[in-house]
């Protein structure tokens, strides 16, 4: 690992100032589970590292407007996995937190790190897409809100300017008759990266689906929604046949590549399987 300057801000304002001074040669350190291996292997050589561990606001989980939830960007995967407020209404997000790495990794890895690294396989992105979350971003020009669907711009690229910081995620209340699920496939049970990840969220009223969200990871440069599959369910009673149809439509939304983690064919196959399974679970949870 190269030598670098370490900055330890104590507040969000300090962070913004540190970013403004540091310039493009700086990196933010939250849990470090992605950053440190890149530093150690010489893939990144920042002159300055800004450590976020001393900023309490980034670790907060607080009620939002309209009974929604605000989740700080440095909340760990382990907290997402276990937090009651998250589990109560945003189970798919808790499930994505529970799947990351191992317990040791989850105690360090953060929501913001997972999103800002912007790997196509980021586990926490599909649940947030399916939950219509918004990212709260701050910088020298003040705060702005970005729908999570617009947050990712490419492989390891986001809308964040070099001097901006992801502060928190705002999750709207999905309502009483809503249920979600996140599943991913990995060859190994722990310590692995999604070959494909799928999050589904279904909201029901009078036996009819009023809102469907299906979001996919690791099948395109950015996490994406399978909107045609969603539309095939909305306004309908959700039956096994319609779930099957939606799973087929989700496959069409996927634009996978072949790499060392899986072929494009296998990824398309998994989108079908995991969409079917997450929709089935989401339906059961929404109906419960």
């Amino acid at each position: 690992m190269r030598r670098f300057e370490l900055v330890l801000p104590g507040s969000v304002d300090d962070c913004v100032k540190a970013l403004a001074q540091a310039g493009p040669e700086s990196k933010l350190l939250a849990g470090g589970t992605d950053l440190l291996p890149q530093l150690k292997n010489g893939l990144l050589k920042p002159a300055r590292v800004i450590d976020l561990s001393g900023v309490p606001r980034l670790r907060a989980i607080e009620p939002g407007n309209g009974q929604g939830l605000r989740v700080g960007s440095a909340v760990t995967a382990r907290t997402l996995e276990l937090d009651r407020a998250v589990r109560a209404k945003y189970l798919s997000l808790a499930e994505s937190g529970a799947l990351v790495g191992s317990v040791q990794v989850r105690n360090l890895a953060t929501l913001g790190g997972n999103l800002c690294n912007a790997a196509p396989s980021a586990d926490m992105a599909p649940p947030l897409l399916a939950l219509d979350a918004e990212a709260v971003v701050t910088g020298p020009k003040g705060e702005r809100r970005v729908p999570i669907a617009a947050f990712f711009t490419g492989v390891r690229k986001t809308v964040l300017a070099p001097d901006e910081l992801l502060v928190e995620l705002v999750l709207p209340n999905p309502g009483a008759r809503s249920g979600g699920s996140y599943l991913r496939h990995t060859p190994r049970r722990e310590l692995d990266i999604a070959v494909v990840g799928v999050a589904s969220q279904l909201t029901l009223a009078n036996g009819v689906c009023t809102k469907a969200r299906i979001a996919l990871a690791a099948v395109a440069p950015i996490p994406l929604r399978a909107t045609a599959a969603e539309q095939a369910l909305e306004g309908q009673a959700v039956t096994p046949d319609r779930i099957k149809r939606a799973a087929d439509l989700a496959v069409e939304a996927a634009r996978p590549i072949s790499d060392q983690r899986g072929s494009a064919d296998f990824r398309r196959h998994l989108v079908r399987v995991l969409t079917r399974r997450t929709l089935t679970t989401a339906l059961a949870r929404a109906s419960a």
């Binding site: 292997n41 190994r188 722990e190 692995d192 060392q260 983690r261």
Partner: peptide, 14 residues
């Protein structure tokens, strides 16, 4: 796959 993330030795969970 030059890391133990993608070079998959089995873990106790498997």
């Amino acid at each position: 796959n030059p890391s133990l993330l993608d070079y998959r030795k089995l873990t106790s969970a498997d």
